[in-house]
Simulated assay, not measured.
Amino acid sequence: MTTKKEKFHKKKWFAILMLLFFAPIGIILIWTNKHFEKKTNMILSVVFGVWFVFILMVGQPSEEEKAEAKARQEQLEKEREEKKLAKEEEKAQKEKEEAEKEKKEQEKADKEVKEKEEQKKQDEEAFNQAVEDWDSYKTDLLEHYGEAGVIDIQENPGSDFDVVNVYVPNEFKISSEDERRYYVEEIGPLLEEDIGAHFNNDQIWIEFKYEDGNNMATRKMFGGWKIK
């Protein structure tokens, strides 16, 4: 015949353990399981009951501690709120600075566009005025360069005076190539400078032609003239 195994919560060691860690249960166990005599149970109950109450009282914070804890909590909440406000202010300031920067950049861009438009308008007006004054200016040029053999100066059609044809007598054809090269290299730059100053254009190209319309010298892409 086997002996029925006693449950652990009815053993003495478990009751003592409960007295140490949670007295109310330990007190119940020592009375219900009769581990000790009645007198001993009463002593243990009083001692560990007082111990349990003492632990509870010690574990509870005092009013001063509660006040300090509340103050710390309020301080933490205040600091969090201040940090949050500081971040929001920093973000708002950054957005404001970026908006001001974009505004200044846009104003600068608008100003540049306006200045370019005004400059373009002034250049167009100056060019139109130069075109109107061209006949008079050309007369002065022919008087000045006539002694060098220039008999006419005409705009190359469709070039807006970027390319100008300079006509010389057909007799220049009998000159040697070196003589013609010397002539165009001496007269060409002077004409380009004078005509460029009139039209405010430093990219004027001179093409030399004989009076019959045939080419005498044409501009090379990278400077100088090609003698025909």
Rank of each mutant, 00 (worst) to 15 (best):
V164S: 09
E179M: 08
G146Q: 07
Y182F: 12
K209I: 04
L190N: 13
V150E: 11
F161N: 07
E177A: 11
D178M: 09
F161Q: 02
E207P: 00
Y210I: 04
I204M: 07
Y145H: 06
S159G: 11
R181N: 12
K173H: 05
P169N: 01
R181L: 12
F172T: 03
G196A: 02
D212Q: 07
P169A: 01
N201K: 09
E143V: 00
I195H: 07
D202Y: 05
D152P: 12
E179C: 06
I153L: 10
D178I: 12
D152N: 15
S176E: 14
D160E: 12
L191R: 11
D152T: 08
S159R: 11
S175L: 15
H198E: 11
I174T: 13
P157F: 06
Y182T: 09
Y182K: 13
E155G: 14
D178S: 15
N165M: 08
F172G: 02
S159K: 07
P157L: 02
P169L: 01
P189K: 00
G158S: 06
V166P: 01
S176V: 06
I195G: 15
V168F: 00
I153T: 03
G213I: 13
E171K: 10
R181E: 10
Y183V: 00
K209S: 03
P169K: 01
G196R: 02
E211A: 14
D152F: 04
Y182D: 13
V168Y: 01
N200R: 14
V166I: 02
N201A: 06
E143Q: 08
E211Q: 14
E155K: 06
E171R: 10
L141H: 03
L190P: 09
D202G: 12
N170F: 00
N201W: 05
S175Q: 15
D202W: 00
E177M: 04
V166W: 01
N201C: 01
A197R: 13
E193I: 00
I153G: 03
R181D: 13
K173R: 15
L142Y: 13
P157Q: 14
W205F: 04
E147K: 11
D202I: 07
H198R: 10
V150F: 03
D202L: 08
V163I: 14
Y145P: 12
V164M: 11
G188F: 07
R181Y: 06
N156Y: 15
P157T: 05
N165V: 03
E177P: 02
N201P: 06
E147V: 07
E186A: 05
N214W: 10
S176T: 15
N200E: 15
E207Q: 06
E185A: 06
S175D: 15
F161W: 07
S159V: 01
